[in-house]
Amino acid sequence: MAGFFVNLKRGLQKTRSGLVNSLKSAVTRQDPEELREELEAVLLQGDVGILAADRLIKSIQGQDGDRWQLLEEEMLRILEGEGENGERPPITTGGPHVILLVGTNGSGKTTTAGKLASKYAGEGKSVLLAAADTYRAAAIEQLQIWGERSGVDVISQERGADAASVAYDSLSAAIARNMDVLIVDTAGRLQTRSNLMDELKKIRRVLQKQGDQYPQETFLVLDATIGQNALSQARLFHEAVELDGLILTKLDGTAKGGMVLAVRQEVDLPVRYIGVGERADDLMEFSPKEFVQALLE
């Protein structure tokens, strides 16, 4: 976990200097109105969102004790979620563990698929990638290059082919070859395009045809630089394909991981991974505690 700290801190450097300094000055305000206004300004500028910001401010207002600690605790409570903080399904030997990646255009699905493949391959698992983004030009080639880098086979058809059929074939192949993990990369789509969301449902449906357990995990890949639209994405993708969690990408810029709070507060989905760079190993498991600590330290 030491690696998590170093990498995350590197990624969050800019975030911290801005957010932390303003927060530190904000919590010292004595006048309640001033405290509220300054805290709100800082939190909203961090993309935390109005509801989560309100909750954080209330946790401090009128409370005795170390405000800094109070804030940290409340952030942690939000990130750990209301519902049971379910364990991820383990990777077993009884058939492939299928991970379906969904998200809007340019959120980083293909890169994340490549990183996940490399991660599992590095752990000694047998991995297969499915190029079910048959729409975007050169998406298949992009995934193939990621596959070559980590020595993972990519199942694909020609561009324009039926994405669901690619997914189905890939799962058949993964079962036949007795693979441990299958990662399905899908085309980017805006969550309001109902016809494209239907296509996604179909992908899920055909995977289930080969067993109710498939896909074991469906992740929404979210770009951390986006703002409140993340909520709409989380809600609508969840409605369509039942998400199991989120992967937050591009946390290495100045975008302030505040999105994590907003999404967890309003759509009860855990963050599973964060992406903090372009290298294959720049994908880390998400830990709420360390995330808050790194953010506030």
Binding site: D47, Q228, G253
Partner: peptide, 12 residues
């Protein structure tokens, strides 16, 4: 610029 960008748009 992605139209969905949050507060960070200004920094970028």
């Amino acid at each position: 610029v992605d139209g969905m960008t949050g507060q960070d748009a200004v920094n970028v």
